Simulated scan of single mutants.
Amino acid sequence: MEEILKQILSGMNEMKNDIAEIGKNIKTVEHRLDRLEKMDSIEHRVEVNQIDLTDIKEILEKMDSFQTDVLKDFFQIFKGNSFNKVLQEELNLINQRLDAQLTKIAKNEEAILMIEGKNNKVS
């Protein structure tokens, strides 16, 4: 009877060791599956990003071609001498107005300095 109990105990110990080893193997498999899920997720994101990048590239190419066409028309107009004269006149007018404003600012600064000088003499 004792031998049978010893055999049963040794068999149970072997089963316990086997179950522990199976548990380790299951954890290893779960870890690998988690990594595969992460890889699938990363691959999916890469595929989605590639699609987004392709769409963005197409949009940029369309914008570039549109801007090139519009700029060609603009520069053809800009090449005309009459347009250049009008622009030159407008720039001269703007410069004159800026000069007038700077002169007014300088006069006001001078007046402020004179008033401050009078106030300092009175004090």
Rank of each mutant, 00 (worst) to 15 (best):
T54F: 10
Q76L: 12
E58S: 14
A100K: 10
M39C: 03
F83Q: 05
I115K: 14
K107Q: 13
Q96C: 04
E30T: 15
N108K: 10
K57Q: 11
I115T: 08
E109M: 13
V70Y: 02
V29F: 12
Q67T: 04
K62G: 03
N17I: 07
K16R: 07
L91G: 00
A106V: 05
I4T: 01
T68A: 09
M15R: 08
K107H: 09
A20H: 05
A100W: 05
N17K: 14
M15E: 08
S41R: 08
I59Y: 07
G80M: 10
N25Y: 07
L9A: 06
N108M: 12
E89H: 04
L53H: 09
D73Y: 06
V122P: 00
I56D: 14
I8M: 03
N81R: 06
I105S: 04
K6S: 03
N120L: 15
L113K: 14
L60G: 02
L93G: 02
I56R: 15
K118P: 00
I42V: 14
L98H: 08
I51E: 10
L9V: 09
G23V: 05
D99K: 10
D69F: 05
E110D: 07
E3I: 11
V48F: 08
V122G: 01
E43I: 11
F83V: 08
K85P: 00
K24M: 10
K57I: 12
R45A: 13
N95K: 03
K38C: 04
